[in-house]
Structures are given as structure tokens and as C-alpha cells.
Write a protein that binds this DNA or RNA. Sequence first.
DNA 1: GATGAATGAGCATTCATTCAT
DNA 2: CATGAATGAATGCTCATTCAT
Lengths: 208, 208, 208, 208
Amino acid sequence: MRAKNVSEPETAPKKSSDLFQKRQKQIIQKAMKLFMKKGYAQTSMREISKATAIDIRNLYYFIKNKEEILFLVFDRLHRPEVQMFEKKGILDIDDPVEQLRAAIAGLVENGYGYGQEVLLLYRESKSLPKRLLKNILEKESRVVSHIENILKKGCARGVFAIEDTSFTANMITYQLSLYALRKWNMKKYTKRRIIDLMEQNILKMVGH
Amino acid sequence: MRAKNVSEPETAPKKSSDLFQKRQKQIIQKAMKLFMKKGYAQTSMREISKATAIDIRNLYYFIKNKEEILFLVFDRLHRPEVQMFEKKGILDIDDPVEQLRAAIAGLVENGYGYGQEVLLLYRESKSLPKRLLKNILEKESRVVSHIENILKKGCARGVFAIEDTSFTANMITYQLSLYALRKWNMKKYTKRRIIDLMEQNILKMVGH
Amino acid sequence: MRAKNVSEPETAPKKSSDLFQKRQKQIIQKAMKLFMKKGYAQTSMREISKATAIDIRNLYYFIKNKEEILFLVFDRLHRPEVQMFEKKGILDIDDPVEQLRAAIAGLVENGYGYGQEVLLLYRESKSLPKRLLKNILEKESRVVSHIENILKKGCARGVFAIEDTSFTANMITYQLSLYALRKWNMKKYTKRRIIDLMEQNILKMVGH
Amino acid sequence: MRAKNVSEPETAPKKSSDLFQKRQKQIIQKAMKLFMKKGYAQTSMREISKATAIDIRNLYYFIKNKEEILFLVFDRLHRPEVQMFEKKGILDIDDPVEQLRAAIAGLVENGYGYGQEVLLLYRESKSLPKRLLKNILEKESRVVSHIENILKKGCARGVFAIEDTSFTANMITYQLSLYALRKWNMKKYTKRRIIDLMEQNILKMVGH
DNA sequence: GATGAATGAGCATTCATTCAT
DNA sequence: CATGAATGAATGCTCATTCAT
């Protein structure tokens, strides 16, 4: 084993290593849990160190600094949603109504609306410098873009009637995290029921 | 020693005094702004001290500790919206459509205050003891209730068509904080425009 | 006592206080000694705290951060030289030769060349951010300027013959710290003798 | 365990090897640059590791510790200037004026190395043990001696007029590091121009 | 020689809070 | 009310160096 001696020159001497990646993933996952439970600023590196059982000084062997952990957490958080559109073949659906329906179901199903992940984004995005935040928001925007494209197509075909597709796409995307941020009032609904009600309401909103 | 009015040991030196109340209000308002901008945990007493121009040590003359400030902030925060329905005479409007329109406009108009506040709630609810959190959520629920009542009336009169009024009321209420939580995508819209687009979308959603 | 209740609004609540200034001076002086002995980076705040007998946390009550200490040290270091020209009436001397002689004697006498102060500047100036370094170097430049002005006047009157007054002024100023930086070879000379030899050499250098 | 050539316990695994010597040289050169730019204490082993592209842990295969690097740097540093007098045939020039001119040009020309080196000496001599420091200063004195000899010869032949040749030799030697120590004011001059102006000024100083 | 892991020590800095005058 | 002083506890992060494989 360890047959690869193609080490990159300077910048990334071991980032390619499986072990390195494994450790990083481990850190990110534990940190994510802590961030969700206590908030980013309230979670200390020492706590992350304890949770991962990696000495705090060796922690810095795998990540540059605390901020980078948050960035990586966000990155991992948003990845599934962005890729879902391709994976589930939503982009290939022709009928805009069915397409929108699939997107809603997919995103809610996929956990976009569940978990406290979205809440984490809303809560802690301030803790990222603009440079990194932009990166994160770009990914988020891609979800919105996909939805807006569906809306546009629907309008073009005359099945939707929307004054401002961008605004409405934002409204819809935002809506999808309803459950996460209003748990206290949503407990009485099942996931299936939420998806149904959302579909109904949203389709009415975009229709004639 | 410490002969100066030893009335109560700790908390209350002169709660009756107008000046005391004024200073407290001052602290709460400045702290609220800071909490909204930076988050509770990220706001230091030193910053509150600077913002209020009250020496940090004298700050403890008016408030027990940092946590109490958060209590007081939330307390003061939730009052206006709850009362808005009465103040603006929304409850007296007969036409459900107009009533809903007025509620939306009223809540958003109010300096985006509602969204700001909810955001703070979403973000900092962890920092609040359960007792207080419940209290706040109750107030919040009353806003939802008001809206649900409007929806119900509309359904009864046949101008609205809603499958689950509770769910839809929640959706609408949640929507109102769209601006606050998705600032980065909302910058291109004016307040007036947002109100218009929201009204439009929501009315379509609840209609036939 | 303490009759002054004219406290500045925000930025400087107590900088005017005598006690505050006294403490700051105390810190600067102790820090200066440590910096000279061990170097800036090698001196820890803890050591400064110990040397001043001020708790490390209270230290930050009087200074913003370590960097500021270095800045203040430099500031205090360079002040006497800059002011010497005015104090000793050097600017009022008409004859350029006598003026230059007085400046040399004054600067060396005054300690410009003595102590390890100059060495500190050369050694540690890297540790200051450009913004602050500029400030320090400006003061240093003023010494050079004064000398250059003397040279220019001398040239105009025909008593000096210098191709590049700026360069020569720099050479002269630099020369003045000869003793400090080459102690090991200068031990055999008295201060008086050094001044004499320097005067001689420099005057020859600038003459015809 | 550790069966791999247990010749000597610590320091020297294979000092004879060419590759070993090559790597050491490489380390010293890169470290020297860093020390000059940032200072010894401010340069971390990690940086040296990066600069040499030798893993920090393997670095300790070639050098004992950080301090040893500084030793070796100084050792290597002082050789060229001392030898320059012989190499460039300066000692063979008969005319003292030309000889002095050549010495100045030679020392400054040498990549400003002399100044750089002296600066490093001034700055970091604290970090060196006395034994080594003495050794270095001796070498430095030999440069001064060479210059003093030129001055003496010039005086004997009546082309120079110097009261104290030792002092003046020191002044001249010191002057040569002007550029290194006063970079901020020297930027406007080219190397050639500096040499010219220095030659001019110094020759005037030593002449009649 | 590369690599994964550790370690003891220390750094500058900030925090909320208290208390006596 | 203001103010000088203290304090216990953390914070994120870096250092040089060692060792076994």
C-alpha cells in the first residue's frame, strides 16, 4: 500500500491522502453537530478537539483554522441539494408543473427543509468572511436558479403566470425550509403531508 | 460600608426611578441592534457599553447580567407586532382580502421589524431558557392565529380556498421574514416592491 | 481632587488622566528595556506584565496591544532628537559650518548615537505594520531633513560642495549611530573624542 | 529497532555523503534569506521547511536544531567578504586612492551582501553564543583592518590626511551598510549611483 | 528518506463580572 | 453615578522538536 509517491510539490502535500481526507471528514462532521447544537462562535476548538479525539494541535494539521471548518461544513451541507437536480433527473422533465412538483418533493425529501442545517446557514453565515460566504451563497443561488428556470419555462408555455420569476423563485426556495425554522408549529404534520400542502399552495401561487 | 441605599441586596437599586427606566430602555434598544447585527454571543458587554455610552461597570447598575439583556430585548421586541392588529384596526376590516392585505403590509412595513425579530428568535433561541422561549413562541403564535382567523373567514365566505388554514397561516407568517433571512438575494427590491409582490403571490395562493 | 469631569465622549475616556499616563509611561519604559535586551518578538506580554507589576489583563487597559507598545517605544525614542533642533537653537545658527557642528554634537551628545535605541529601531522596525512604521520614519526623516537643509544652505553660500545633499544627509545621520552599532570597536574612544573625530571627518566630507 | 546505521547516536548520520552536504547547503541558503528578511526568531522552522521543500521532520535529519542553522548561516556568510580582498586583487593595487575605491565598490557591489550580512549580525547577535559571536567579530575586524591599512599607506604617501585611521576605517566600513539599514531612504538610488556617491564622499573625507 | 502522530510549552488577547472608593 | 483595579476562565493558534514505522 501507499504506492502513490506523486506528492504535489508544495501547497498540498497530503491533501490527496485518503487518511487525511478521512480525518478531515471526521472533523467536519463532529464540528457540524456541535455548531448546530451550540452555534459556531460558542463552539471552541478545544471542544472540537475533544469530540474528534484529535489533539487540538494536530487539528491544525488537517484544517487551516476554525473558519475553514465552518466553510467546509457549509460546503458539505449544500452539496447534496445542488447535485439533486441532476441526479434525480429533474432537469429532464419537460412539463413545468411536474418539474416544479418534483423539485419541491426532492428538496424537502432530501432534507433541504429538515434538520437544522438551513438554520445553521442563516444563523452562522455572518461568521464567514465575505469571500467565503460568497462561495456558499453561490451554491445556494444555483438552487434558486434552477427553480427560476422552471418558472420561466412555465411562463413561456403559458402554464404559469408570474410577475417576477426571480422573486417568486426566492419565495419558493425559502418556503422549503419552513419546517426547519418553525418546528414548534409544524410538529403535527408528517413529511408527506407537508410536501403535499406545499405543492398545492405553491402551484396555486404560480398558476393563473 | 456601602451605606448607599441597601434596600435590596442585588438586582434593584431604584427600579422606580424614571432615570433608571430610561437608562434601561436605552441599553435594551442599543443591545437589540447589536444582537441583530452580530448575534447575542458575539456581542460583548464592552460593545454595549460603547454603544450606550454607559461605562461597562455602571452597566451592571441597570441590568443584572448579559442574559437579562437578552430577556428584556425579546420582551420588548414582540410587543409591537402582536398589538399591531389592534392598533391598525386590522381586526375591524370586514373584507378578508383587504384584511389579509393589510396584515401583510402592516407586518412587513413595520420597518421589517417582524422579520428581524423572528430572525433573532431563530438564531438566539438557544441562548434563552425554556420558560422564556415558550412565552415568546406563544406571542408569535398569536400572530399566526390572527392570520389563520382571516383565512378561515375568507374560506367561510367563499373568497379563499384553503385546504389547511393552519399550515397556510404558518407559511404566510414565515414568508414575512423572507427579506430578513435572505437579504443577499433581496437587495435589488424596494420595500414597497416586496410588499406588492408578496401580496400578489399570497393572494393567489389563498384564492381559488 | 479629580475636579475634572470633562470626560471626552467615547474614544478617550481616561487617556487624559494623569494616572493613566503615568501607567502608560511605566509600561513603555519597562517594555523598552526588555525589547532592547531580548528583542520585540522575544519579549512576551507576560514578561512586560511581570516587569511592570501590572496584571497582564489590566495591561490591556492601558495599551491596545503589543504592537502599540512598540510604537509608543519608538515614539518616545525619537521624540528628543526631533525636538533637539528647536530646543538647542540650532535652527537659529547662521553659519552652516557651526550649525552642522552643533547638530552633530547635539545628536551624539543627546544620545542619538548612544544606547541601543537606534539598534532597536533598525532591528525591530519590521515588526511594525507599514502604517505605524511610516509614522516613525517620518520623525526620523525630519532629523535628516534638518541636516539636509543645513547642507543646502552651506552649498548656496559656497562653503559646502555636495553633489547630492539628500544622500549625504542620510550618510551623516546614519554615521551618528556608528557607536551604537559598532560598540565592539568603539570602546577605546570617549564620547568627546568621537564627536571631535566625527565633526572633523564630516566637515571634510562636505567641504571643498 | 532503528537498525538503520546506528553509527553515531544523534547528530551525524552520514556527514560525508555529498547529498547530505548539498541538502545542508540548501537549507542554510534558504534560511539565510529568510533570516535576513524576517529575522531569526521570527522565522519558523515551518517556513524554512517550505522554502527548502524539505519536510520539517526531515529537516532535523540534516541539522541539529534551529540554532545550528544560525551558526551555519553566519559561518558561511562571512567568508566571501573577507576573501574578496584577496580574490579581487585589491591588496595588489598600489595607488591607495584606487585601492580604496576598489574596496568600496567591491564590498557594496557584492550584492549589497556585506550590508545585509552586517545587518543580520547587528540584529541577531543576541541569539548567538559568545564564542561564535567573537569569531564573527574577528572576521569583521579583518575587513576593517584591510581598510585601515589602505588608509595608513595613503597617509604615509601623503595622499590621505587622517587623524585617526582606525576610527575612520570603522566609519567607512560602517558606511557600507548604509543601504541595508536605511533602505527606506535609499530606494531612489541605483546601486551604481550609491557606489559613486559613497566613493566621492569618502575620498573627500580622507583627502586633504 | 517519507509519513502519521504526538507533546510540552507558550503565545496575545478577550471575556463577564465584582468591588471598594 | 464615576473610576481604578482586580480576577478566574477561556479563546484561537503556533512553536520546536521527537519518534516509530
